[in-house]
Design a protein around this nucleic acid. Structure first.
Lengths: 179, 179
DNA sequence: CCTCAAATCGGATAGATGATCCGTTTCAGA
DNA sequence: TCTGAAACGGATCATCTATCCGATTTGAGG
């Protein structure tokens, strides 16, 4: 793809900076435009939908998640590997409100899709290894893990965020087979 | 409060019946009016906001939940009592999409508030007893339990609902102290 | 440095959705 | 039956979303 013209790049940055610290729930492209000091059409040109904007805002976080996930799967102990993986995902999702959107939405950019596919593949590996070594219940699938992480995120968001680790810990220990 | 006039009661019933089997996410008062065959204003007169309509739709479920909760707290075994309580709450919340709204919203009708207060009081009792008897982690509060139930509901909704019991089970076993 | 075509810009405005107002109709008690 | 109060419907206003188009800016070539 061709490089952006300098003014276009400036507008894009202004839009992203403005949108970054707003709750994704009440993200209106018109509001962002006004707050960023650019025209409405400029925002719509750069980001056709709110989802596209949210994706752009959280691509960095997704990259970071994949990086951390790769590191986690290299941990020798299967339990610790799995735990580290899930913990990374949950913490990043709590910190970056829009990450869940990318991970669940069907319509994402090719770049995001590639990262997501790798992430799911890593998750599959980590989970399989964990189950094979008896540190996670055998009736759990990656879909379950993903949705439970989203559930924990939801639970954390309903509070002030201070008990993040506690709620995550409940979920993780619930996944162990002996319990 | 004065009894409803017959035509008003009829309208109210038509509105509720129409709204009942629609996803609360895309519940538009205008749409409901059209589908119910009544004027827009009639809907707005009966239910000032979507939330008010959702509350009316789910009051029955809340009553049922309180009833089940009362029964649960009478179970002698503290672990079973707590588990039954939480299971009831989770299953009803999954089945009745709008229940969470009543349980979390600040602005509810006095009737709903009374039921909710009793429910929380029962939850407090069940949790305290469970902790005192060592069947639930002592660092858990009723707020945690409530939010975890909402989290599980969220996780179930992200799927097709078939693994409801599994996800709930993960959460419940995660709450036990030994894990 | 100047020019010009291409790309971007911004805001007016069309379109969709949400909520209110007010004249008309229906109900229930006398 | 008559009458006032309450409820009714839909036209209308308000708000929010998204597109179109003339004006402006950019940067590469002469």
């Amino acid at each position: 793809m061709s490089p952006l013209r300098s003014d276009a790049a400036r507008s894009r940055a202004k839009i992203l900076d403005t949108a970054r610290d707003r709750p994704v729930a009440d993200l209106r492209l018109n509001d962002v435009a006004r707050a960023a000091g650019v025209g409405v059409a400029t925002v719509y040109r750069h980001f056709a939908t709110v989802e596209a904007l949210v994706e752009a805002l959280n691509l960095d976080a997704l990259e970071q998640l994949v990086t951390e996930a790769r590191a986690a799967t290299e941990i020798p102990d299967p339990g610790e590997a799995f735990t580290t993986f899930v913990r990374s995902a949950a913490l990043l999702q709590v910190e970056h409100e829009g990450l869940q959107t990318i991970l669940l939405s069907e319509e994402v950019s090719p770049a995001a899709r590639a990262l997501r596919d790798e992430l799911f593949s890593l998750a599959e590996t980590a989970l399989e290894t964990a189950i094979r070594n008896g540190v996670v219940r055998p009736d759990i699938t990656t879909s379950h893990v993903q949705r439970l992480v989203c559930g924990v995120e939801h639970a954390v968001r309903l509070g002030d965020g201070t008990d993040r680790d506690l709620l995550l810990d409940v979920m993780l220990s619930g996944l162990s087979p002996t319990a």
